[in-house]
Design a protein around this nucleic acid. Structure first.
Lengths: 325, 325
DNA sequence: CTGAAAGCGCTAACAG
DNA sequence: CTGTTAGCGCTTTCAG
């Protein structure tokens, strides 16, 4: 493996000159340039990024933490973040924070250990304190980690209201909510708060069926919803995440419940899958592209050391009328 | 930011001793240990990974290249690979190789530049030659990059046969195939070859509706399938990827075609979503867990410099009887 | 314009 | 058991 030294020797110049040539920084005579280019070719030289990282004091990598929800929402989010960061010249390191909070902590560590230049986090098992005192670029999606950390989130309050008002307008008075609040205080919870508020204002009942947050597969639904057959038969509306809604549609259909006539289902997230299935799922949609873009843009501002970073950015949600409610 | 030097000074020992203490390598007196531990605490010292990477000649990062198919298959794959690598102490860097092959090339570069220790690739826009002469850990899924590069793949030949035989057994004689072969020669294509062979052996016709491989969203399907209404009405069977099958179900239903009576749909991949929707999609399922596991295990063997690495590993597929065929 | 030299912060021989 | 020393390979002053 050729090093910069070998190139310098072969080109008959100093290593500083080679470095300048490689990076296009500083002055450089035409002759030096050509000699160096030739030497690079001949030796098949490739700069060692590890050495660069050390002396440049950066790695060009941004870590992205997502909860190990097996949901299309985060799949889409991470894809778009990766593409966005790439276009800014940064690479993406992912972390699916399965159950254990140790893993989340370890990635925060990677930031302190200078393995990554910044962290975009959607994770939620750790208390804010794990993040709050870190003096490095952190952007949070959906979870308030304190005023020092820029927060990007969908307008969940409006989202919760849209879902509730729609269900109410369709005559629902006994609604099932799949999945509940997060333990930590976060804007995400506002959708449930507002949902509950609107329902209660309209004298409608909300029953919460808690789900293990990391189990969103069919087998689990089958079993979990199976235990709540009675509740499902008695309900007239459902509020759930995309996969929850799709699973509920499946299960309720099997029970012979007619949708939307007897049971109305409204999903939250509104990812592409809700438009692919039959019927299209009625949903409150988050604008994943915009969320991802704001996260990457803000992260880039942070790593570039820019001032004037918006510390709270809210993204609008919108309603998608489908055939399930 | 405290360095190892500061810790050494504070603890009154040499930096080598600190290094040993930190890494648990070599001898260390009880006294040194405690003094160092105290110094580390007091200075709030955190080792700098960038420096470690340079001297250890590794980064502990594995790059994973996936085509930017917006499909649940790769979403699930990458999640499982990330978790697998993590358990081996490695981090995952992702690359969604959107349209452009430049990005794929750049990630191969990262390997040569020592930014990542290895590459697991499912990408497919580049010719094998881009990979073949790289003397670093590479594992390929589904695409044959030459004998030097371990290949993991599903038994697509059997998969194609399962799909074809099932459709034939259900009486189909005029089948639509959504999406076609990859340009490069790969095991993935065997599913289509075998599918075509079985169909033709049974005097059944196969018509291919090509899809842009990076557009698997509803809007595209709607428009694309709209142009082929006639073909769809005339067909009695469909073979497609998960999302293709789900989209086709949706579209055909809207055309008033009864499924599976008039049109039978068999999907390829069989990810979780095929079990969540209604009806469950009849599918040939790939064992994503096993594929991911073999990829990570093989990569770890490679980075550990082990010999005796299987260069061709085939994973079985299985049939899932659903309600679409 | 150029090169010597001093880091970047850590690991690992090697001689005590 | 421990400290000195020599790297790892590149960037970046700073005198020429």
């Amino acid at each position: 493996m050729a090093t910069i030294k070998d190139v310098a020797k072969r080109a008959g110049v100093g290593i500083a000159t080679v470095s300048r040539a490689l990076n296009g920084t500083g002055y450089l005579s035409e002759e030096s340039r050509t000699r160096i280019e030739r030497a690079v070719k001949e030796l098949n030289y490739i700069p060692n990024e590890r050495a660069r990282n050390l002396s440049r004091k950066r790695t060009g990598i941004i870590g992205v933490l997502i909860p190990d929800f097996q949901t299309p929402f985060y799949d889409a989010f991470i894809r778009q973040v990766e593409i966005g960061l790439y276009n800014y010249g940064y690479r993406t390191m992912v972390c699916n924070c399965v159950k254990t909070r140790d893993k989340e902590k370890e990635f925060i560590d990677m930031l302190e250990r200078n393995m990554v230049d910044g962290l975009i986090t959607c994770a939620l098992s750790l208390e804010d304190s794990a993040y709050r005192y870190i003096q490095k670029p952190i952007v949070s999606m959906d979870h308030d980690l304190g005023v020092d950390i820029p927060l990007i989130y969908s307008n969940h309050r409006i989202g919760g209201r849209m879902a509730a008002e729609y269900l109410i307008s369709q005559g629902c008075r006994k609604v099932l909510q799949l999945g509940g609040r997060f333990e930590t205080d976060t804007p995400s919870n506002e959708r449930y708060e507002e949902f509950a508020r609107v329902m209660s204002d309209n004298h409608a009942a909300v029953q919460i069926l808690d789900l293990e947050w990391n189990r969103l597969d069919y087998e689990y639904y089958q079993c979990h919803l199976g235990r709540h057959q009675k509740d499902i038969r008695e309900a007239d509306g459902v509020f759930a995440s995309d996969m929850g809604a799709i699973g509920m549609y499946h299960f309720a259909s099997e029970l012979g419940i007619r949708i939307p006539e007897e049971l109305k289902i409204v999903a939250y997230d509104g990812t592409a899958i809700t438009r692919m299935v039959t019927p299209v799922v009625t949903a409150v949609c988050q604008d994943i592209s915009l969320l991802a873009q704001k996260c990457t843009d803000t992260m880039i501002q942070l790593v570039r050391g820019e001032d004037e970073i918006e510390d709270r950015q809210v993204v609008d949600v919108y309603f998608q009328k489908g055939g399930t409610a």
